[in-house]
Design a protein around this nucleic acid. Structure first.
Lengths: 140, 140
DNA sequence: TTAATTGCAAACGGTTTGCCACGTT
DNA sequence: AACGTGGCAAACCGTTTGCAATTAA
């Protein structure tokens, strides 16, 4: 949680973190971002990375993909879109399936909730892992 | 992770845990299940609860709802259905919106992945919390 | 019998936080 | 000057795991 509602500031660390996240489509984890960021800013700390990710999310500039007891992932693309997750290698990619624009209102009717958003994830095996499985058919 | 592929056994702890989970529609957390289970079996340990939840999930008897860095939740209903999550109180409920039976194949076409399943969660404010907000309009 | 399961408690791992110096506004 | 932010390191907390004893099959 962020200390309080406040006027956020622009700092070198925050800028670098955001542009780093914007530079990839790989939906990286905090650890990955931290490692990368350290290359350009050897003194950044984990705390800073996590705090800024929270701030950026609160500002609505990035999106947090919470993924269970596994690590969270972050996405600089805040437009409405869905994800495919490879059950074999853990990769997360964008997927372009038709967004049902009426999904939220249908859900509202069905539940009585005031719906703000929804999240749709597909789980499967990515092309790379399919190939890998077909060749080295040793596992199992 | 479960030790290995093996022949699972039926134990009192496992049976009790499963029927406890089946007795509620509240998608409880491991902690809740542990506390409840302790009422009937004062000596169960957390380890046992977690291990059995993993086993049951692996057997396909229950479903794990991974929910970000927050606690996982568990669901004895393994049929295809979706959830609404209250952003205010954290409650998780089933929601009956039409399941798009063709969603997976559309996603397959769009991504090249071999899709096995998908997950759809709606986020919003439940009726209780809406009421609460309307009355005690103090916060914020 | 014998391998899976249990209880216990310690370890894990990602994330958060307290402290105080620092830098943005 | 005021207060949000940074670095550091310890704390958190849900979950996992090693071990020796137990128990289902």
């Amino acid at each position: 949680m962020i200390p309080n509602k406040a006027t956020y500031r622009t700092t070198p660390q925050k800028k670098a973190l955001l542009s780093l996240l914007r530079s990839t489509k790989a939906h990286p984890t905090a650890a990955w971002l931290f490692d990368r960021l350290r290359l350009e800013m050897p003194d950044v700390s984990q705390g800073t990375v996590y705090r800024n990710l929270s701030v950026l999310a609160e500002e609505g500039v990035i999106r947090v993909l919470r993924n269970g007891s596994a690590q969270d992932r972050f996405d600089a693309d805040v437009s409405e879109h869905y994800h495919v997750i490879c059950e074999s290698c853990g990769k997360v990619e964008d997927i372009s399936v038709n967004v049902r624009t009426d999904a939220n209102s249908e859900a509202e009717r069905a539940s009585g909730y005031e719906i703000h958003s929804h999240r749709l994830d597909f789980y499967g095996v990515c092309p790379d892992c399919q190939r890998r499985a077909a060749v080295g058919d040793d596992a199992e």
